[in-house]
């Protein structure tokens, strides 16, 4: 598929007798928000880890930007432009907001093995970091210690750090979790803008948020994708209603 950024092809991963990924295929198109939903234990985290690089599938391939990245490390995929945010904020909590963003810029620019010049005086790194913070609206907090940020601000910072990579695709694990209605709405608006730059594969529990912002939805149940389609298709899909929306035999 020509306009696909990320292709997952028939991925299988078992833990003992449990098939956490049971032949999953999925793709992420240019300019879309593709939501991945599924009940607890459906294998969402396992799938995300295989896409991001922390876990190697038993079989099947992951292609990113047309390259087979199945054997590549997390760090290598990140350098190719796979930006990631986590459900539980993965940030350097003792660092300031700006330092976290600079850390992202350091990884992106391959400046890791520079030993002498202070990172926080490097104009190029700072410019990249500040640009990302401004995008998410955290520029005023740049000197705040990350541990002191509110939950919502940490989510914003997660996105900012991912932005410093100039990503070609985003992998977001429950970015709305614990955001509240107002914050969730604002973030949804921001994601709509962001997807023009790089498509987003979104794992989300908040159904309202998913239906409000996703262009396509894939439903994962017991390690299998039972349906992929637009919001309307998923909403009306009988299998999905039974398996996920909890309306079995009802109404």
């Amino acid at each position: 598929m020509g306009n696909s950024i990320l292709n997952v092809r028939d991925i299988r991963k078992s833990f003992g007798a449990l098939a956490a990924s049971d032949g999953i295929s999925l793709d992420l198109h240019v300019g879309e928000i593709h939501a991945l939903i599924g009940p607890n234990g459906a294998g969402k985290s396992t799938l995300i880890k295989q896409i991001a690089g922390g876990l190697k599938p038993d079989s099947g391939t992951v292609e990113f930007l047309g390259r087979n990245v199945t054997g590549m490390t997390t760090a290598a995929r990140a350098r190719m432009g796979l930006g990631r945010t986590f459900q539980i904020s993965a940030l350097a909590m003792d660092y300031t907001v700006l330092e976290n963003a600079v850390l992202g810029a350091v990884g992106q620019s391959g400046a890791v093995f520079r030993f002498f010049k202070p990172a926080m005086k490097d104009a190029a790194l700072l410019a990249r970091a500040r640009a990302a913070l401004t995008r998410v609206g955290l520029e005023a907090q740049e000197n705040t210690i990350t541990a002191e940020l509110s939950h919502g601000q940490r989510r914003q910072l997660e996105v900012a750090v991912a932005l410093t990579l100039a990503p070609k695709a985003f992998l977001m694990d429950e970015p709305m979790a614990g955001m509240g209605a107002e914050g969730s709405k604002r973030l949804t608006g921001f994601l709509q803008e962001l997807k023009q730059e790089a498509p987003i594969l979104l794992v989300e529990h908040d159904m309202d948020a998913v239906f409000a912002c996703a262009d396509r939805i894939s439903v994962l149940v017991y390690g299998k994708i039972i349906a992929t389609g637009t919001v309307e298709e998923i909403r009306t899909n009988p299998d999905v209603r039974v398996a996920y929306l909890g309306e079995e035999g009802a109404a």
Binding site: A90, L91, A92, Y95, G104, V106, F113, F116, P118, A119
Partner: peptide, 29 residues
Amino acid sequence: DRLNKSPFGLALNGAHQNEERALTVGINV
């Protein structure tokens, strides 16, 4: 002291605070 403040030091301590984050910004930890 210079080393600690350099990009290397920032990454080293950052990876100490959160290894996952360091990996996902492309640092070979």
